[in-house]
Amino acid sequence: MPEIIEGVVIKGDGIGPEIMNVTTEILSIFPDIAFSWEEKYAGLEYFEKYNELVPLETLEAIRAKRVALKGPFTTYSGKGPRSANWVIRRELDLYVCMRPIVSHSKGINILLIRENTEDLYGAIEWEIHDVAHALKIASVKGCRRIAAYAFKKAQNSQRKKVTIAHKANNLKITEGMFLDIAQSVGAAFKNIHIEDQLIDSLTTDLIIQPGNYDVILTTNTFGDILSSLGAGLLGGQALVPSASINDDIVLVEGAHGSAPDLKGENIANPTGLILASAILLEELGANSEAQMLRSAVEHVYANNIMTADCGGQASTTEFAEEIKKELRTLIQYA
């Protein structure tokens, strides 16, 4: 009998239901793991119907099951409610955001780890006399726990280097605290090389020589920007997976938006969410299944079967069917 894992599914906005449906179908192929999904709701579309961005029962379900697969949310710029992502991460204290930026064909294998609840993400803003202010937050606790997570993950993943990305030359207190604490935590990991780099020079180097980077540890805002830069190196925003984590919960998603203009067209790229499911499998200890899923995705791309955003002609469902075929073959010969 397969191991049954209970989890929460939040389909989200825009293309969310389409990419979620094919991803859960792909996960159902594994013979030794069976997911029992409970659907819950959140996001802008839900808010516009019920005037509630993230229902309490959604948060409670994630706390109880500790496993969640989430679609993208739509968020207006400069108006409207806060992002549902902001609510979920803050309410559940999902302090780790982990985003692998990987392309073996391009020699890129970066693990980006950013703090997920502090920095400008606290969204503490006000306006006085025509001047807008935003508060940047850094706490000893917040800096220490994300640094500890990053170095432990690097050690457990047999990675050799952690680069601390910062702007401590200018923001000497907040970014200075982050840098000092990260270096202090990292000093206990004797087998890991530590370097630090200013965020502006790092972005240039990352484009020119991405193969020089292994683990990048940074604050929230810088990490968000580096994630999108990394997606560009791979070939598109839809190719990067994301995991929001604390000591009890793992919530995974694609690191991209809801693309409302593509809703219902069956052309959205589900790669980010599929690869995020591999992170989920790995976090649950299903390492062989995680590797098979990643290999299946690599094989499909190697066969030049891609959705339109990557230059191909496959629909969402056609792409997913190819993943299923590859996965069944890998399972058969495992």
Rank of each mutant, 00 (worst) to 15 (best):
T218L: 12
P210A: 12
I192L: 09
T218Y: 11
L206H: 12
P210V: 09
D205Q: 11
D214W: 11
D200L: 06
I199Q: 14
P210W: 11
Q197C: 00
D200P: 06
T218I: 03
T204L: 05
I192E: 09
F189D: 09
D205S: 14
K190N: 12
D200G: 05
I207D: 10
I216Q: 04
L198I: 02
L198K: 10
Y213G: 03
T203L: 06
T203A: 15
V215L: 09
K190V: 03
D200C: 03
I194A: 04
H193T: 09
I216V: 06
I199V: 15
L198A: 08
L206N: 04
D214K: 10
N191Q: 08
D196W: 15
L217G: 05
I192W: 08
D200R: 10
T204E: 04
Q209A: 06
H193A: 11
Q209I: 00
I194E: 06
Q209H: 15
L198F: 08
I216P: 00
L202G: 00
I194M: 07
L217D: 01
L202K: 03
Q209D: 00
Q197H: 14
L217S: 07
D214H: 05
G211H: 11
Q197L: 11
L206C: 01
T218C: 15
D205E: 14
N212H: 13
I192M: 02
T203Y: 12
I192H: 09
D205C: 03
Y213C: 01
K190S: 12
G211T: 05
I199H: 15
I208R: 11
L202Y: 05
S201T: 14
G211L: 04
I208A: 08
I194G: 11
D205W: 15
I207L: 15
I216T: 00
T203G: 01
I208M: 14
L217I: 06
D214T: 10
D196T: 10
L206S: 02
F189Y: 15
V215H: 04
T204Q: 06
E195C: 02
F189V: 01
N212S: 10
D200I: 00
T204G: 02
L217F: 13
T218E: 10
S201N: 08
I199L: 15
L202H: 05
V215P: 01
I208C: 06
I192V: 02
L206M: 12
E195G: 13
L198Q: 09
T203M: 13
H193G: 04
E195N: 13
T204C: 10
G211A: 08
I216S: 01
I207C: 13
I207G: 12
Q197R: 15
I208Y: 14
G211Y: 12
L198V: 08
I207H: 07
Q209C: 03
Y213R: 07
L198M: 14
I192P: 10
S201W: 08
G211D: 09
F189W: 04
T204W: 13
F189Q: 12
P210K: 11
